[in-house]
Nucleic acid binder design. Structure first.
Lengths: 94, 94
DNA sequence: TTGGTATTTAGAAATATTTCTAAATACTAT
DNA sequence: ATAGTATTTAGAAATATTTCTAAATACCAA
């Protein structure tokens, strides 16, 4: 949790692109990096931010670290937006 | 449109708080400012970012500028997230 | 153990963001 | 026209973010 972290993570185009890549399935850090014109170190930096925001989780295997999309946090963000929009289920008189 | 701008706008806690305030209805810049411990200039800066992202629109009246939530852009962001999550309606083989 | 591949960490440079103060603009009312 | 209130704009300082290079860690294979 922590919407601040999550929205911040979503605010960078590289990180959103990474998430879109992961939509098709898990990828290693190297495979992710190969889609961008940046060093592995920079990709690692972005992956770390996504991980802290719990938008992805990692899975170590052999010599690789695989990253996977965490859709449950995506869903939490959608709920926040739905409430902002005034979805009936979440509007509470206060 | 322009998700970069929109997500960036949503990434700041002050701006998210402003949007939540506006959920209840339109407010003038001054009324918005009174909820925060910041100068009017800073609030104006944030309102401008929200305006550029089309998350709010303004309405000039008398001596005041009223700001109002634009829920349609909130909805577009939700669609982007829904697609990321893999909602059936938006998944397209590519 | 030695060497190789995958990835991260550290530190620094460039850029962007947030905030302030002071000044400017815009509109109202007298 | 003048004075007053509401808000924005400009410019500067503080802080945060993004990116790189170089070095470190982790793991595998021979």
């Amino acid at each position: 949790m922590g919407f601040a972290e999550t929205f911040k993570a979503l605010s960078d185009p590289v990180r959103r692109d990474i998430l879109v890549l992961l939509k098709r399935g898990r990828l290693s850090a190297g495979e992710i990096g190969s889609h961008f014109d940046m060093t592995g170190a920079t990709i690692s930096y972005h992956l770390n931010i996504l991980k802290k925001a719990e938008l992805v989780f990692e899975n170590r295997e052999k010599n690789f670290i695989y990253y996977e999309l965490n859709t449950s946090v995506v869903e939490e963000v959608m709920l926040w937006l739905a409430e902002l929009k005034g979805e009936k289920e979440y509007v509470e008189d206060k």
